[in-house]
Design a protein around this nucleic acid. Structure first.
Lengths: 213, 213
DNA sequence: TGCAAGTAAGTATGCGCTTACTTACCACAC
DNA sequence: GTGTGGTAAGTAAGCGCATACTTACTTGCA
């Protein structure tokens, strides 16, 4: 097999294993066996185990699903369609993490283990969406469409609802947590509803909000 | 040192180490050294490393801070004071995880590693609060104080906002994420505001919500 | 003096990584 | 076509060290 093909194949199985068992919990021998080669081959393509781990980032960079979300989001933002912006974001996040549970696990594992991969994933994928969304909220506040709420608070709140739902489904629904019997489409609708209701509720506790700013 | 004292001391240092480096990443020798005893002592008090890990649960059960939150929450619920219920919950969660970062790390590590400790933490601490809160929301919907929203969606959304803020501060603010320069008290206020506004907004997209139920 | 608390020094296994070696491929003179 | 030499893909075996856990022994207090 050609060098580049082998390299990609090793990365592919490494993503699976690292995401399931973490950096420390995955052995180079295991990766080699899953790739069907001798362990020494791993070290011909990657100087160290850690280099192999960080090389995962490049593969994750250009996922189709992520790009689809980015463009769907941009389209809705340009149109100024609040409902579409938040519903699409929620839907894509729910779908993405349902189909691919490697990303979330890799992020959590490397954040806990203090590996630089966590920072790379955060910088390259998450922080950009956060900033874009905060910009959008800020603009809509300026438009008078949203209440005067700190955009960072709003974004963190909304993303939090969705991510929590993802993690709940992934890790805790089997532990006796209350199940949410909704499709991702329905869940996205509900959370977007919840969020937009709070952003546009000019009657609730109005003085208090005003006074803060 | 008496057996029980030694046992407790070992557990204490084990909590710190396991939460920092996970089950796989922590060695029994390391725990022994941190406790200032020979490695063999560990195995006199706990049959296996795994038994030591799950024994952590007992220590975590009766934390003062958790009990304070439970009673503060109950008091506010009995009084039917919506703002207090959600603001206090948010504040206590933020404070708890700021002062003690072992709980969150242990939960995440063991959820990822598939250890039963995750299920124990979830069952004993998290799921109870979720259910209580969902009950409260359900009651307030029946009162006509809240919109007719699925209580599980509402609770998961609110807890999600708070937990996301905790994790963001813990892991990602150093990675170039936008900082939220608020005290825990202020953040709790903002998130509770956000949530309550959405629960009481009878004017926004009313038909749509109605139609769903 | 008896017994629990504590230790030094193991064992078998598995880890990341290296070394010494063998095979497969492929352009090119003849 | 056919030998030939250089290069890269691949392997078996093993190095030094760390792991979870054990055993045989020593201390100190009721």
């Amino acid at each position: 097999m050609a060098a580049e093909d082998r390299r990609q194949q090793i990365l592919e199985v490494a993503v699976q294993l690292f995401s399931q068992k973490g950096f420390r919990g995955t052995t180079t021998k295991e990766i080699a066996m899953a790739a069907g080669v001798n362990e020494a081959i791993i070290f011909r393509h990657f100087a160290t185990k850690s280099e192999l781990y960080t090389a995962i980032m490049d593969r994750k960079a250009c996922s189709d699903e992520v790009q689809a979300m980015q463009s769907a989001l941009k389209e809705a933002m340009d149109a100024g369609d609040d409902r579409q912006v938040f519903e699409r974001l929620a839907f894509h996040m729910l779908e993405f993490h349902e189909h691919d549970d490697t990303a979330m696990r890799l992020l959590l594992y490397s954040a806990l283990e203090g590996h630089e991969l966590a920072e790379m994933i955060f910088r390259n994928h998450i922080s950009k969406t956060h900033r874009q969304l905060a910009e959008y909220v800020k603009r809509r506040v300026a438009d008078g469409a949203f209440r005067r709420i700190d955009p960072v608070v709003a974004v963190r709140g909304f993303i939090g609802m969705i991510i929590n739902q993802v993690m709940y489904k992934k890790f805790f629904e089997r532990c006796g947590g209350q199940p949410l019997n909704l499709t991702n489409r329905q869940a996205a609708e509900r959370f977007a509803d919840l969020f937009l209701a709070s952003m546009t509720n000019h009657s609730y506790d109005h003085q208090r909000i005003r006074r803060k700013h």
